Simulated scan of single mutants.
Amino acid sequence: MPEQGSVAVLIPCYNEAVTIGKVVDDFRRVLPEATVYVYDNNSSDGTGEIAREHGAVVRCERRQGKGNVVRQMMRDIDADYYLMVDGDDTYPAEAAPELLAPLVADEADMVVGDRLSNGTYGEENDRAFHGFGNDLVRVLIKWIYGFEFSDVMTGYRAYNAVFAKTMPVLSPGFEIETELSIHAVDKRWRIAEVPIDYRDRPEGSESKLDTFSDGCKVLLMILSLFKDYRPLALFSWVSLLFCVLGLVAGVPVIAEFLATGLVPKLPSALLAVALVFIGILSFTCGLILDTVVKGTRKQYELQVTEAYREHGRR
């Protein structure tokens, strides 16, 4: 337990009656001075009542989706350190002090509970596409942002008050983990990773994650954040694609003109000009949006400075 600062344990829940009692008990035992918050997201199995009986502070969030729950948690709760964990009893409470330690030592702003490095996720998880999706997202983030997470989709994280109060949560659902990760990398927050043991859900507990539909949402979220955070890079690739297509369509026309002085393939010539024009226009859009993003970054840095005055170390 940190010797300085208050800790809030955040548990977003939807129909976790089988496990929520044990999860609350475990975190109250490991972090006795922390406040455990359970946000019930329209559960129909009595999750909220069970959590309250075990000593958690229970609140309701009517907007369905994990992202909506996390957004409201960050708005409602004031603490020096936040520990976010799923209510399915797949993450060990005993690892909580290790996740909080880099924050207390002021060595990190967000700490990620890494399930993959020690191999426990591969041993316990029997859903093959979940591991593949995690690896795909990790590769995309490394390719786009140059930072390699060991585990990007983990639901076990800790972060400090300044990170929490300046994090603009946009995603409504399970994309929230990806959004947190990309935001931390893009805004150059200090990131630490702590290997943790993972255990699969106990019998009777069912995952709410749909591998394919939620996986598509995650990929779309990555593309959307790429557009928002690095528009010049995105539109440069789009520009290059259209210019190459324009050259493919235009080179034969130019070669024939040089040989005969005629342009018999007028439609091809017009197509080539249009494609190159679209490419130049895309690059111009990228330059304009990049200027806007840089201005937004400056405003964000000022907001972070103000947040440090209000929520920083006391």
Rank of each mutant, 00 (worst) to 15 (best):
P252N: 05
E94V: 01
F242K: 10
V263E: 03
K22H: 07
L223D: 00
K66I: 11
Y91P: 03
H54Q: 13
V23S: 01
S207G: 05
L220G: 04
V30A: 11
E98A: 15
H183D: 14
E123C: 08
I176L: 01
R230P: 06
R201L: 15
V218Y: 00
E53Y: 09
Y37D: 07
G46H: 13
V24A: 02
G261P: 02
G119I: 07
F149R: 00
N118M: 12
A249R: 09
A34G: 10
P172F: 02
G46R: 13
I141M: 09
Y159P: 01
I288P: 01
V137A: 08
T211Y: 06
C60W: 14
L302Q: 11
V244D: 06
L209R: 04
D135P: 02
R28D: 05
G295P: 02
N125M: 14
F129N: 06
Y81G: 05
M73W: 10
Y82C: 03
D76V: 11
S213G: 02
L209F: 13
K294D: 02
L99G: 13
Y156C: 01
D106N: 14
E49T: 07
L83Q: 09
F235L: 15
Y91S: 13
E123L: 15
G204T: 09
F129R: 04
N15Q: 11
D78F: 08
Y39Q: 13
Q4L: 15
E310T: 09
P202D: 14
A192T: 08
N134P: 02
P102R: 14
E3I: 11
V24N: 07
G133A: 09
K187H: 15
L262S: 04
L31S: 05
T120R: 12
E61A: 12
L136K: 03
V58P: 03
A259E: 08
V139H: 04
G113R: 08
E193I: 06
I176P: 00
V69M: 05
L219A: 08
S181N: 01
C60D: 15
I222D: 03
V169E: 00
G261D: 04
D45H: 09
G246Y: 07
T284M: 11
N42F: 10
C60F: 15
P172I: 02
G119C: 10
K227I: 01
L170S: 11
R297K: 08
I254W: 03
D290A: 09
I141Q: 03
S236K: 07
V169N: 01
W237S: 14
G122I: 07
E310L: 11
A164V: 09
V293P: 01
V18M: 08
W237Q: 14
N68L: 05
L31W: 07
N42A: 14
A307N: 06
P195E: 12
T305N: 08
E124R: 05
A51I: 11
F226R: 00
L219F: 11
D109Y: 12
V253S: 07
